[in-house]
Amino acid sequence: MPRVEKISVAITSEMAAMMREVVETGEYASASEVMREALRDWRLRRRQREQAVDELRRLWDEGVDSGPATDGNEAFARLSARLAPKFSEK
């Protein structure tokens, strides 16, 4: 097991009550165990957020590299003009 460092953390009375409750019910063995799991979850959410930001950056770069932007109304007008004959044949 890695070296354990004892620190002091200030939390709200509501958080302290929740922590005591889960320890008292046996869901966790100690308040430290609750805090360790909370920090692991926090670290996971941070990693997921970083991955999401990296993916957005990649998609942004892909969009920029794909060429100049096209006006949406013009694009839909061209698409409609191209598809109109197919729908009028039916």
Rank of each mutant, 00 (worst) to 15 (best):
S13R: 10
R36S: 02
D71L: 13
R45V: 03
R47P: 00
E50L: 10
E5R: 12
G26W: 01
E27T: 11
V34R: 00
R20H: 13
A69I: 10
S30P: 00
Q48Y: 02
L59W: 02
E24M: 08
G72L: 15
P2A: 15
S32N: 15
Y28P: 00
E55T: 04
R58G: 01
D54K: 08
E33F: 01
A16E: 14
S32R: 11
R82D: 11
E21Y: 14
P2Q: 13
L83N: 06
R45D: 01
F87D: 05
A75Q: 12
R3Y: 08
L59G: 01
P68L: 09
V22E: 00
W42S: 06
E55C: 03
S32T: 13
R43N: 04
T25D: 07
A75H: 11
D71S: 09
L44F: 07
R78A: 14
L56F: 10
M35Y: 03
D41V: 11
E55F: 02
L56D: 08
G67W: 05
A52D: 07
E62F: 10
T25I: 01
L83S: 05
A17S: 09
S8M: 02
A69S: 14
D65F: 04
A10G: 04
D61K: 06
R20N: 13
M1S: 12
P68Q: 13
T25H: 04
A84M: 12
L59Q: 12
R36K: 12
F76H: 12
R40P: 00
I11N: 02
S8I: 00
E74A: 15
E27C: 08
V53P: 00
E21S: 15
S80C: 08
G67V: 03
L39W: 03
F87K: 12
F76K: 14
K86C: 04
A38R: 07
R57S: 12
D61H: 09
E74V: 15
G72R: 15
R57P: 00
A31K: 06
G63W: 09
R49S: 11
Y28R: 08
A16N: 14
T25E: 03
M19D: 01
S8A: 10
D65W: 05
T25Q: 06
A69Q: 15
E33H: 02
T25N: 08
Q48W: 01
K86A: 13
N73S: 15
E33K: 03
L79N: 04
S30E: 06
E55N: 04
R40W: 01
E50Y: 04
E27Y: 07
R58V: 05
M15E: 08
L56S: 09
L44Y: 03
V53L: 13
R57L: 14
A10E: 06
R58H: 10
D54C: 02
R40E: 02
S88N: 14
T12K: 05
P85A: 14
A52K: 10
A75V: 07
A38Y: 06
R46F: 03
V22N: 01
V9E: 07
R3K: 11
R58L: 08
